[in-house]
Design a protein around this nucleic acid. Structure first.
Lengths: 342, 342
DNA sequence: CTGAAAGCGCTTACAG
DNA sequence: CTGAAAGCGCTTACAG
């Protein structure tokens, strides 16, 4: 198969290579007739410029890198989807967004961020639930490339979060006010042996939750805390056993680790003959699209991911369009969804 | 920020640029000592080669393009995840896989496939639930770039499917054998006004289902068929009304369009006081990870996406490693999951 | 094994 | 407005 180059198009159209380049890039210093003729030839011959040559020639790359542990994690996919939706609505940058995954390999995650920076593969970074070292963040700052942290917050970078402290507080307050006394919490990212095991979102949810309980004079502590690592239904089932084993006879539990954990807890509690919510009130986190259809329907903290995506996209635009301004830290309000499980 | 180039590394290490290139690419004609010295300098200075320059220099791009309507659709994300899992297990190509989305814009979809081809942005294409015209498929064949269709099947391209005919047949046969007489089907992609509205998977499921019903002497036809377009719970709720409006008093329904449709149907039927499965048996499709936890738990056709991903990855490897062979068409067996709803 | 040189396909000053 | 020329940062024959 013959590979067409800009040279071929130029001779087919009877113009110079730079004229073709100008037509492609929609530059103004070219007559409309010439432009149209060139574009016609391009279309006729199915010519698409080689992307790598464009990037090299231009000296910059206008991709928006969306970096996460895994794009296929439902929450991560939803965040990306909402950023894409904002891009579609604004009718710009839609095709510039490229997902990158670290596949839960922390060193690879750091390496990925370095590669994107030093290999100049992106002009804006959206990093979801990543914990990069300050050193990398500073290098980005020096390079003038914006980093937008989602589900994290650090100096020298933008951040967009759904107010996790508030989410935890709402859950704690509701259970306390309903007269529950032995209130457990299941939370991820508490095992901060290294920065990789730390989750800003998890820590904030726990902090808000415990502040609420303390406000109402309810005990907190290790006995009432279990950690989540996988955020799966199966894990939730096992965690319920852990509470029993250490003698924590809960009357309610807040699954800050998500609706899936809550599903596991409910499954496990029922097998032991407990009634939900009478014997055990359960609150989830996220409000997955099917959570209202579960049995019982799940009381949960809803995360307005659409708003999160919109805010992130605003910062993306500001960065790409060179609008100055200091680092923004945006907190979006979560919503308490009262249903049957609590 | 100073941008390091291969030139800088060469002078820092006291060697030529080609030596650095050889070290980076792990070529053999270089002494181990030289290589190590170069790699040390590279690491020390955080040098990452500019990807676009590498591609341009090499004259080829080794990315594996994963093309779908939207990577954030749960089924699509799962297929990608399973391909990635296979890559991880095989410890190769993990970081070569890049997702591209057409965002449900059919022309953009075709354009994307052309761009990937003519702009040489990929060396293998995995196209999920895409309906490219034969013309494009043939161009890929001529260019020697493999196209692997998933949820579709065409000449001149590989294909990997979960046997949709069989899935439909299993559902139809089960309902017929349970003594159901008025059996509805809800299916997507039947509105083949253009090739974009056509779904190979949907058509095959319907064909298998109707063959089963005919085998057991049960009526089929327009009255018992409704179309799905969005595959959402909400849509399922509305579709149940459609059946009632046209006077189809069903005793059972097969939601070939997925478990979400089934959830909507169940929701709607219950609001009308129907008992599931006594008054209405409902079979879904997919077996979403939460489908066993619904109320009632959902009887459904499970799609073994892990196997699908593994098969697709095998073909990817064969293509990348230049193993010859004719086009493969793989059909994976689905599994009937008996639960409470039917 | 090493290094000088040409080439990949674009873009972008710059001269006309 | 157009076009010849240099440059982007790599890779790859090729000569040594």
């Amino acid at each position: 198969m013959k590979k067409l180059t800009i040279e071929d198009i130029a001779s087919l159209a009877g113009v110079s290579r730079s004229a073709v380049s100008k037509a492609i890039n929609n530059y103004s210093d070219i007559t409309p007739e010439t432009r149209e003729k060139i574009l016609r030839v391009i279309k006729e011959h199915n010519y698409y410029p080689l992307e790598s040559a464009r990037i090299l020639g231009k000296g910059k790359n206008d991709t928006i890198a969306f970096v996460s542990q895994r794009i296929t994690v439902p929450f991560n996919a939803l965040v990306l989807r909402e950023i894409e939706n904002s891009a579609r609505n604004a009718n710009k940058y839609v095709y510039n967004i490229t997902p990158f995954s670290s596949y839960h390999d922390n060193k690879k995650g750091d390496d990925l961020l370095r590669k994107l920076l030093y290999g100049r593969r992106a002009s804006v970074i959206v990093a979801l639930a990543m914990n990069p070292p300050q050193e990398i963040i500073l290098k980005y700052k020096q390079a003038g490339i914006s980093v937008i942290l989602v589900e994290n917050r650090m100096k020298n970078a933008h951040s967009v979060n759904i107010d996790n402290y508030q989410g935890g507080f709402l859950a704690g307050e509701y259970l306390a006010k309903s007269g529950r006394k032995k209130i457990g919490i299941i939370c991820g990212g508490m095992d901060a042996k290294t920065r990789y095991n730390y989750s800003y979102a998890g820590a904030e949810r726990k902090r808000g939750f415990e502040d609420a309980l303390q406000k109402y004079g309810i005990k907190t502590g290790q006995k009432y805390l279990e950690q989540a690592y996988n955020y799966t239904i199966r894990e939730g089932i096992g965690i319920f056993d852990n509470f029993l084993h250490k003698g924590a006879r809960l009357d309610s539990v807040f699954c800050a680790s998500g609706d899936l954990t809550a599903m596991g807890i409910i499954e496990s509690a029922r097998k032991r003959g407990m009634k939900i919510p009478q014997d055990l009130a359960v609150i989830g986190y996220d409000d997955n699209y099917y959570s209202a259809f579960l049995n019982p329907s799940l009381t949960t903290i809803r995360q307005p991911i659409d708003k999160l995506g919109a805010e992130a996209f605003n910062i993306i635009c500001d960065s790409l369009e060179g609008k100055p301004g200091s680092f923004k830290h945006i907190e979006i309000e979560p919503e308490f969804k009262k249903r049957q499980s609590a």
